[in-house]
Design a protein around this nucleic acid. Structure first.
Lengths: 253, 253
DNA sequence: TGTACATCAGTGAACGCGCGTTCACTGATGTAC
DNA sequence: TGTACATCAGTGAACGCGCGTTCACTGATGTAC
């Protein structure tokens, strides 16, 4: 199975060009099917049908159904990561609260717009499917888009979480890896708080998408805004430290 | 289709008793199958096979596969709700922090012990299945078990969230419903913070169970403890108010 | 530029599988007299 | 207490369905001389 080049240069043969194009078209079609059924329901035959191909033809492009799923997962992470990064890039880099709010909002919006793809990457694992390591990098891009903002805010002295948890050594070692994703610089306790914030953002979108506000909270957008306000306060994210950390901090005054 | 009485009294006929028993046995077997495959994979035929019955026999007990799923969902919510309530009941009622930590821990433990049932109730919706309203009550029991602790803590003056978000009126009206689940008494902004805490607990368990700490954080129990410490601080849950709310609060001193 | 051969895309039939649900049936259990 | 009839549990065969994957094939595209 030959991998498909991302970019098609001029010297590429017509056959290769057609191959790359159809390969992408298969992905697009599969994504469209996903929008109508769940990831577990996604069938090669249905995709082939939509494309007017024989089912067996897909095997020239994807080794198996799992390979197609993997491509979809990676695509979804990339798409979401891109949406988050673009939202961030549109804001003044020094306005950390605004960047955080805009980026988290973009994450939620993407989820609302792509509920089945969200389920594919953040929902229950697809049964019988084991994600290969290729997906990890793509998943990390989303994490980085969120965490970077908080890391930069911290570096600029604009993140002062009032909650400074004790972090045991073995956990601190692992948090260091998260820290390294964004270039280091966070103390253990702040890194832990950042992971909690990351978890809340993803978890809250899932709760909403998976129907757990049903019959209770219909004002979803307002609830999101309120939740993010609470989160921002809890993070101590903003221009002025609300409290010094650990009695004596880096905060002025 | 006759409903099965919860309790079997002495006058019940042997046939009815057998019916009730097998009805329960079907559920138990289905739950066991769930532990091995995902909810979407659950098949009537497999359950019948495990019980040594013809597939058609199950139709005497459950109208359809969806009806069986519904019974499983309600059972899972009840089981989780019971586990949470029991953990709470084991703690001194005035020790709100301990109650919160014990109860949330119980929620996580139940999830770790019943990952597929967790996925059934909190994971991506099972495709093609639409949950009937019967499940809502059962779901609420879990919410109540968590929220009640915070409501009681607030009533006792032991909950002082430093984050007091602005809550728009239409959202406040909906939060009132949540409030009513536990007998009222929470101001809008506190109710909003409580919903955020509820969301974090459920979201964090899902993230862990669905594999989003994989390749990053292996010290799951420590991470949980740290997260709950952060959450507790963010809630302002404890004996002494860490800050007065809105400048002048009910806090003493 | 033209020909001979190799490569590769896509076909269509077939494989074996498991699923939810229906239906006419049998034999056992329960009930009314 | 005994008999006649009604109810109901469970059977087994069958329905129609869609699935992932394999395989021998054809015809078109690409390449080497």
């Amino acid at each position: 199975l030959v991998t498909v080049p991302e970019t098609v240069n001029a010297s590429t043969t017509a056959r290769a060009r057609a191959r790359a194009e159809l390969s992408r078209e298969i992905l697009v079609t599969a994504r469209a099917r996903l929008a109508e059924e769940g990831p577990a329901q996604l069938s090669l035959r249905a995709v082939a049908r939509d494309l007017g191909l024989a089912p067996s033809a897909l095997y020239r492009y994807y080794e198996s159904r799992d390979a197609l799923l993997t491509a979809l997962i990676i695509g979804a992470y990339r798409d979401l990561g891109r949406a988050a990064a673009e939202a961030d890039a549109a804001i003044d880099p020094d306005a950390y609260v605004d960047r955080w709010l805009a980026t988290t909002r973009a994450v939620r919006s993407w989820g609302l717009g792509h509920p089945q793809e969200w389920a594919l990457i953040y929902g229950s694992p697809v049964p019988g499917y084991r994600a290969p390591d290729d997906t990890v990098d793509a998943a990390n891009q989303v994490t980085v888009a969120l965490v970077r903002i908080l890391a930069e805010a911290y570096a600029a002295g604009h993140l002062h979480p009032p909650a400074a948890p004790e972090v045991p050594a073995h956990l601190a070692a692992e948090l260091a890896r998260v820290r390294d994703l964004v270039g280091g610089g966070l103390p253990d306790d702040v890194a832990a708080v950042v992971v909690v914030a990351w978890g809340y953002v993803l978890g809250a979108v899932s709760l909403e998408l998976f129907g757990h506000y049903d019959h209770a909270i219909e004002a979803r957008a307002s609830m999101w805004d309120v939740a993010m306000a609470v989160l921002t306060t809890s993070l101590g994210l903003g221009r002025r430290p609300s409290r010094s950390r650990r009695g004596e901090g880096r905060s002025g005054r």
